[in-house]
Design a protein around this nucleic acid. Structure first.
Length: 650
RNA sequence: GCCGCAGUAGCUCAGUGGUAGAGCGCACCCUUGGUAAGGGUGAGGUCGGGAGUUCAAUCCUCCCCUGCGGCACCA
């Protein structure tokens, strides 16, 4: 055997990594939890082949240890559940980020009390330090075993294992599970204080909604109690940043029963929205886009022509008129309209007005397009998934040869926008042709190459997702990373060979022939609603000054300063700053506390001294004390800082 | 849409088979206070909607709506 440091060791035939560890040292024998043989994680008890490269894995090897601990937690939990309720049928339980889940089939739902009982039972199992044994079974024996034990899901799983692959059974105590492995040496290697059962949820067997809904229990597990606590703390942090909570606390927006999934923007929320929209408008104009506005209610005929009626009908809001006599007399009863779920067909209508020449291309039509989609009730989530939303949408009509340059320009624009908005990193994914698609292979070749070359020319890393493109063309998806490391897919760039054809878009080329343009769908933010949700969570409500709804509050210390405060606010507003006066009959402590909690970036306290000196005492959000500045000086500083990033002088 | 949980004052939440409570917020009064809660008084609820059981329902049962956590969906 060769060890990681290059040393070699000779072991008797049939020896395992455990034997090897014991041969090296007593402490290693105790610390070893698995082995990496020729780069593959295996059970410590697995026999070694002659000449193998062996690295012993201990709890110090983070990635491997977590994988093993979480995996064993899944099994120990399943065993605990079956010990508590022998009728429960087991299914699958994989390792996921931070932990694991296991799906069970049980008539009665698991309660919170049940979770506590399961956790307790798991700790008992861990305390038993039952050795984990593995056996390789014949397929028929495994099927017969599970049939005899009334485990239909396991029977199905055994059947799904490809021919030629070994069927492994893992045992600890009297309990067994079908599993690929590897596992820890004994159940006692799972730290008993570093895991926690988190929640119960429904999940379809094999992820298919036509199948039975099972009960999934989620757990998290780490190597130490400290790591677990750090993780729970991080969850609290995410909770603290939740845009729904912050949206209420900062009075940005609300949602209500009468309009599920549609946002009521409050003055402060709408201020942030407009700051973002104005910024985007300037960026788009600078990049050569023309802004348009198209109807929200459009006759069914257009949606039939575009193909949306056939393929997207279930997600569309359709207008209907009651059949009562009065309503029947309504002129609109004769036609069926739909709220637009996307802007593209309308944009083609704009394009189609007037015959276009190749000299007009590329034509970039942008719209802050208000769309409605009938999202299923269970999928809505605050601002992140809504039924009424506004896309920063645009469609570029161009020739096939222009795709690459347009794509490169788009990525540059997107990168600038993300940077301006405080997101440093983003990932790119290229999705290529799926099985069923429109357009010739030649066109697909050209478009896929164009997208790929555009990314490469910019020297950006990317991933390819083969077969994941839309039926109408290849696409790029852009995922940004927020302040606490979460990823959000926002930007998209999609070539479309379908819609121009369906809606009969054309242009005259330099040979005086009428040909189809390529249509490029693209968005940077995705939807304003969702992006604002992301911004709120990214900043935890503490927006940079240029986006903050209230930028400055002028708070009086005594009522003697009321007049001066009004003057300061007027001066700030004249300079374009969103400022308000707080002249309420409250102490300065109270005002500071309240506006700090409201995340106002700057509080200017004014009392007798400030009136006298024509100054302001500036307290910045998060800072402890204040700094006295002359009024003019403060104005200048705020104006500079409140300037949107695209308008700043280099 | 599916599974589970929840819905009580503007917000956060307590509570009981006999017509409801706290803190914060809000209004008014006193206080003019120098950087994260000064004091007092008061208003405010069809206990998500509907049906049922009961002498009596905010509480028990059923249906619906909405929200929350997942799953499924996201041409």
């Amino acid at each position: 055997m060769t060890l990681p440091d290059g040393a070699t060791r000779t072991m008797p035939a049939g020896a395992s990594s455990a034997d090897l560890a014991a041969d090296i040292s007593k402490s290693l024998a105790k610390a070893a939890i698995a082995a990496k043989v020729d780069g593959r994680l295996v059970d410590l008890t697995a026999p070694l082949e002659d000449g193998a490269q062996v690295a012993l894995v201990t709890m110090k090897d983070e990635a491997e240890a977590l994988e093993l601990v979480r995996h064993d937690c899944a099994h120990i939990m399943a065993r605990a559940v079956q010990e508590l309720w022998p009728d429960v049928k087991v299914t699958i339980g994989p390792v996921i980020d931070n932990g694991w889940f296991y799906d069970f089939d049980r008539e009665e739902p698991f309660s919170t009390d049940d979770l506590a009982a399961i956790e307790k039972k798991m700790r008992e199992i861990i305390a038993k330090r039952d050795p984990v044994r593995t056996e390789v079974w014949e397929r028929d024996a495994a099927v017969a075993f599970y049939e005899a034990n009334g485990e239909p899901y396991k029977v199905e799983l055994v059947g799904a294992i490809p021919e030629g692959e070994k069927i492994r059974m893992y045992w600890h105590g009297d309990w067994q599970d079908l599993c690929r492995g590897p596992h820890l040496v004994h159940t006692g290697q799972v730290p008993p204080d570093a895991f926690k059962l988190m929640k119960v949820a429904g999940a379809y067997w094999r992820g298919d909604h036509r199948n039975k809904m099972l009960q999934r229990i989620y757990g998290v597990a780490f190597r130490s109690r400290k790591d677990l606590e750090a993780h729970l703390h991080q969850l609290e942090e995410a909770e603290r940043r939740d845009h729904r909570r912050i949206g209420r606390e900062m009075d940005l927006f609300h949602l209500q029963d009468e309009a599920p999934g549609m946002v009521f923007w409050h003055p402060d929320g709408w201020t942030v929205y407009r700051a973002l929209e104005d910024y985007m408008r300037r960026r788009l104009t600078l990049a050569g886009y023309k802004e348009i506005k198209t109807p929200q209610v459009v006759d069914r005929k257009l949606w039939e022509a575009s193909g949306h009626w056939e393929n997207y009908h279930e997600n569309m809001f359709i207008t209907e008129v009651d059949e009562g006599s009065e309503a029947g007399a309504h002129a609109n009863a004769k036609r069926t309209n739909a709220l637009k779920p996307m802007n593209c067909p309308c944009h083609v209508q704009v394009y189609n007005q007037g015959l276009k020449s190749y000299r007009d291309l590329p034509l970039r039509l942008a719209e802050f397009g208000s769309c409605h989609r009938y999202e299923s009730s269970g999928s809505m989530h605050g601002l992140m998934r809504v039924r009424g939303f506004t896309q920063d949408d645009a469609h570029i009509f161009c020739t096939e040869d222009q795709i690459e340059a347009e794509c490169a320009d788009f990525i540059r624009l997107l990168s600038t926008v993300y940077t301006d908005l405080g997101f440093e990193d983003f990932d790119i994914k290229l999705s290529t042709r799926p099985e069923t698609r429109v357009g010739s292979d030649a066109v697909w070749d050209k478009a896929e190459t164009a997208l790929e070359k555009a990314i490469q020319a910019l020297g950006l890393p990317y991933e390819v997702d083969p077969g994941e493109g839309a039926f109408y063309g290849p696409k790029l998806d852009f995922k940004l990373t927020d302040a606490i490391g979460r990823e959000w897919q926002c930007g998209t760039f999609q070539a479309d060979f379908n819609l121009p054809d369906r809606l009969d878009a054309e242009y005259v080329n330099d040979q005086d022939e009428r040909v189809r343009p390529v249509m490029l769908h693209r968005a940077i933010l995705g939807s304003f609603e969702r992006f604002l949700g992301i911004l709120i969570e990214n900043h935890a409500g503490r927006f940079p000054l240029w986006l903050a709804p209230k930028q400055v509050v002028v708070a009086t210390i005594t009522s003697d300063a009321d007049g001066y405060a009004a003057e300061v606010v007027a001066a700030l507003r004249a300079a374009g700053i969103r400022a308000e006066a707080d002249t309420r009959n409250e102490k300065i402590n109270y005002k500071v506390r309240e506006h700090s909690l409201a995340k106002v970036p700057a509080i200017l306290a004014v009392g007798r001294q400030e009136v006298e000196n024509r100054s302001v005492a500036v307290r910045r959000l998060g800072a402890q004390g204040s700094k006295v500045l002359g009024l003019e000086e403060a104005l200048e500083a705020f104006v500079a800082e409140a300037t949107p990033p695209d308008l700043r002088k280099a």
